[in-house]
Amino acid sequence: MRNPFRRPLKQALTAIGVAMLAVSVNACADELIVSAAASLTNAFKAMGAAYEQQHPGTKVLLNFGASDVLMQQIVKGAPADVYASADQKAMDKAVSEKVVDAATRRDFAANALVLIVPKDSPFMPASLAELAQPGVKRVAYCDPASVPIGRYAKGALEAAGQWDAVNAKSVLAGDVRQSLDYVARGEVDAGFVFATDAAIMPDRVKVAMTVPTQTPVTYPLALVEGSRHAADAKGFIAYVLSPEGQAVLAKYGFKPAGTAH
Rank of each mutant, 00 (worst) to 15 (best):
Q53Y: 01
E225C: 12
F64D: 00
T213E: 03
T210Y: 01
V136F: 01
L13N: 02
A90S: 15
A165L: 10
S179N: 12
Q162Y: 00
V114E: 00
V205T: 07
L9V: 14
E225K: 15
P134C: 05
E225F: 01
G77N: 12
R151D: 01
P212V: 10
A140R: 02
Y239H: 12
A132R: 08
A168D: 01
A230G: 02
V166R: 02
A238G: 06
P202K: 08
A110K: 12
E244D: 14
V60F: 11
A126Q: 12
E244Q: 14
V171I: 03
K234S: 07
V23G: 11
N111D: 10
D92T: 14
R185Q: 14
I33D: 05
L62F: 02
Y51L: 02
V205E: 04
R204H: 01
P125C: 02
R106Q: 13
V136R: 00
D101A: 13
Q178R: 14
F64I: 02
Y219N: 00
K59D: 00
A84N: 08
K93A: 14
V188M: 04
A160W: 10
D30M: 13
V176H: 04
G253C: 09
E52M: 07
P56N: 05
P79A: 09
R204I: 00
A153S: 14
F194H: 09
S85T: 15
V188K: 01
D175G: 09
S67V: 07
P118R: 00
E97V: 04
R228G: 13
I237P: 04
R2E: 09
E225S: 10
L13H: 03
A109M: 03
P4C: 04
S146T: 10
T215M: 11
